[in-house]
């Protein structure tokens, strides 16, 4: 084991896959000379050269679409869209072409590509650089959505995504690049569609992903000090979703708090609540509660940004509500 930054884990995953498979290459804005806006591709240019580590123009649609075409023509592109917010510009190419070509063509093609991006709030960079748009992409059959919270998961999942034959949106979090965690020195991968139970508990299930998963763990620790035994699930992948893991936990605790950094309205966690209703309604002892971002654009001002995004305190409060201890 070595202790690595989240950003290093991502870079290592790409580097290892590039060494393993000559079809893998990187392209995006500022990924080569600069090493990525959040340094997640630093050093790759030096090792692999400009043929395989490609700086592009500021052309999000062309980046995403070129990844689709390169994938269909036999390569395995790992393209970067600098901010999740910019996926709006790349969306047609990723969703309408990349996500649908296999189906529309009767299964006669594959589109093995990864679109890396990073989202989330925390840097006071306001409404066009802080969004969490994952729900939009979970609503698009044909693409996967992966959102790791730890260096271990980031590396293991990214390697799996690069090897997978489907288009994957791999969403990092801008506030996690500087987080450290243990990463094995030897080769490993993590299967898609498997959530991680971060902490077992019997009183309440708290579910999160990306940065919120860390706040869920923090909340659980504080709840433990107050005698509340919370189970924490980090989804890691939103599509494919590990429904079974969620249901097993709900059947044990009977109480659920769902968290997300995206706005509350039509949040992806609403789908989780619905699956719980469909498959484990009789096990529920209280209505499912969600802790999401406010239904506002993300504000710049630090006081407003903190108010907008779920805090550990809000998760704790929600847990107490479902336990009837508020």
């Amino acid at each position: 084991m070595s202790v690595k930054f989240y950003r290093e884990a991502i870079r290592d995953a790409i580097a290892e896959e590039m060494r393993r498979d000559p079809r893998v290459f990187v392209m995006g804005e500022d990924v080569a000379v600069y090493g990525g806006a959040y340094s997640a591709t630093k050093g790759l240019l030096e090792e692999f050269g400009e043929e395989r580590i490609r700086d592009t123009a500021i052309s999000e649609a062309a980046i995403a679409g070129a990844a689709v075409g390169a994938a269909m023509a036999g390569m395995r592109p790992v393209a970067e869209i600098m901010y999740f917010d910019f996926m709006t510009i790349a969306m047609d190419q990723f969703v309408n072409q990349g996500g649908k070509n296999r189906y529309m063509f009767g299964g006669k093609t594959t589109v093995p590509m990864v679109l890396r991006t990073e989202g989330g709030a925390g840097r006071c960079i306001a409404a066009q650089h802080s969004q969490s748009l994952e729900a939009w992409f979970c609503h698009a059959p044909g693409v996967f959505v992966v959102m790791p919270s730890t260096p271990y998961d980031a590396k293991g999942l990214l390697k799996t995504c690069i090897r997978d034959d489907n288009p994957v949106l791999f969403v990092e979090h801008k506030m996690l690049y500087g987080e450290k965690g243990e990463v094995p020195d030897e080769e490993y991968t993590i299967p898609l569609g498997q959530a991680a139970v971060r902490r077992t508990g019997k009183d309440v299930t708290i579910i999160g992903y990306s940065r919120m998963a860390l706040r869920c763990e923090e909340a659980a620790k504080k709840l433990a000090e107050q005698g509340i035994d919370a189970e924490v699930i980090d989804l890691r992948c939103l599509q494919p979703l590990d429904t079974k893991c969620i249901l097993e936990s709900v059947k044990k605790t009977g109480r659920v708090v769902l968290t997300s950094e995206a706005p509350q309205n039509a949040n992806f966690v609403c789908e989780i609540a619905q699956r719980i209703t469909e498959h484990a309604f009789d096990y529920l002892d209280a209505p499912v509660v969600r802790v999401c971002a406010a239904d506002t654009p993300v504000p710049m001002s630090p006081t407003l940004e903190d108010e907008c995004i779920p805090t550990t305190a809000k998760i704790i409060a929600a847990a107490k509500v479902v336990l009837g201890k508020a």
Partner: peptide
């Protein structure tokens, strides 16, 4: 863009 990416490949 898809054709362009295919050409890159």
């Amino acid at each position: 863009p898809v054709g362009t990416g295919a050409a890159l490949a």
